[in-house]
Computed example of a mutant assay.
Amino acid sequence: MRSRMQQTIGKVPLEALLWLVGLTLLALMDPRGDHLLSLCPFSWVLESGCPGCGLGHGIAFLARGEWRASWEAHPLTVPAVLLLLWRCGRLLYFHYRYV
């Protein structure tokens, strides 16, 4: 028998689950700490990084209420987070509405 939590998680659309877990992990990271490894392949090749560089730090700063630091890390942090949360909400809404 599966627990109630396993049944609920099993019903969540995978895309929504991955976005929510990713946002949560980014929000929990220490934006001022040392980073030994970057997951961005552009940062491995280009010194200037990619257009998305700084979003992870921006999300971590935003989760701590540091609006200015979030803006300085990446100006599109707030729109990106809102867009991803909207996407997750739509996925969950349509999934549970038609299940």
Rank of each mutant, 00 (worst) to 15 (best):
M1Q: 14
M1L: 15
S3Q: 09
M5E: 14
Q6A: 15
T8H: 14
I9C: 14
I9W: 09
G10N: 06
G10E: 08
V12Y: 00
V12F: 02
L14D: 02
E15S: 14
A16R: 06
A16D: 01
L17D: 01
L17H: 01
L18S: 09
L18D: 08
W19R: 14
W19A: 04
L20R: 03
L20I: 12
V21Y: 12
V21I: 15
V21K: 00
G22R: 02
G22H: 08
L23I: 07
L26K: 04
L26C: 10
D30T: 12
D30S: 10
P31I: 14
G33V: 07
D34T: 13
H35C: 13
L36I: 10
L37W: 14
W44F: 13
E47P: 09
E47M: 05
S48R: 14
G49L: 06
G49K: 07
G49W: 03
C50G: 10
G52V: 03
C53H: 04
G54M: 03
L55T: 10
L55H: 05
H57N: 14
H57Q: 14
I59M: 11
I59H: 10
F61Q: 01
F61W: 09
F61N: 03
L62G: 03
W67C: 00
R68D: 04
R68C: 02
A69K: 10
A69N: 06
W71R: 00
W71S: 00
E72G: 00
E72C: 02
A73H: 08
A73Q: 04
H74R: 11
H74G: 01
H74I: 08
P75D: 00
T77I: 08
V78K: 05
P79A: 07
L82S: 02
L84C: 08
C88I: 10
C88V: 14
Y93E: 03
H95D: 07
Y96F: 15
Y98S: 11
